[in-house]
Design a protein around this nucleic acid. Structure first.
Lengths: 126, 126
DNA sequence: CCTAGTGTACTATTTAACTATAACAGCAAT
DNA sequence: ATTGCTGTTATAGTTAAATAGTACACTAGG
């Protein structure tokens, strides 16, 4: 994982973990790497990872047990809620961003289909 | 304009100016507010605005003349290029972001249409 | 010439993120 | 008990963004 220097590292790690949970890559109850292990893997300081886990625990996404480890919440509602929040934010950024560039919604939709088509080397319109 | 504390202010101001140029709200040759005027308007320091103008000049989006003012470039190609870059970045963030949340492209497209429909209180599908 | 407004440059200070390092606290297996 | 892993807390130092304040350089208009 490489980091965007414009955004605090701990926020980027938080986002990545949330994505992994929301997409099912990490499941409810899964044990997270220890703060030290993740710090080493990501080449960041232990305190930074500790902050990540702390913030995620504050948001009820993880829970930590001293001496044992940190775990993904078992609460599926919480996870679904996070997913909706994240998707909503992406939608909002995209649509509003395109509007601010002068695209109307129809043009935006078209641009998206073209982009997806280009990436998939095939058309999304079935 | 209110600022996202997670991102440097000067970058946010840069983005806004670029959006205004790309969307046509600011046109080629237009005189920008003076660094002091914009600083006062945005409630930020003169140095911050100075940095914004300096960076935008480096990107050939503005040009500044000492004693006179700062102006939007007359080069339409540059503006068009910026517009494409910004649109591409939005598309990329959106599509990749949705994929990371576990949405396939078809679901993403549907979610977008629903979002646009909700906002417009009407359907985009003509 | 002189003034007012412009961009530009410089120094100093504050704040937050990040790092480095160490220590403390709790659990489990030997 | 001891060892080794865990989360947690604390202190200190570095870096970059942003601020505050000042000064300089240039241009236009009176």
């Amino acid at each position: 994982m490489s980091f965007d220097p414009r955004i605090p590292i701990y926020l980027q790690i938080m986002e990545q973990i949330k994505k992994d949970i929301v997409s099912g890559k990490l499941k409810g109850g899964d044990k997270m790497p220890s703060v030290r292990a993740l710090a080493k893997e990501l080449q960041v300081n232990v305190n930074t990872v500790q902050r990540v886990y702390q913030e995620l625990e504050r948001d009820n996404i993880l829970f930590s047990q001293r001496g044992i480890g940190s775990f993904v919440t078992e609460n599926k509602e919480t996870i679904e809620q996070i997913k909706e929040e994240m998707a909503h934010e992406l939608l909002e950024n995209f649509v509003h961003g395109m509007r601010e560039l002068g695209f109307d919604d129809k043009s935006t939709l078209l641009a998206l289909q073209q982009y997806m088509g280009r990436e998939a080397q095939g058309n999304v319109k079935d």
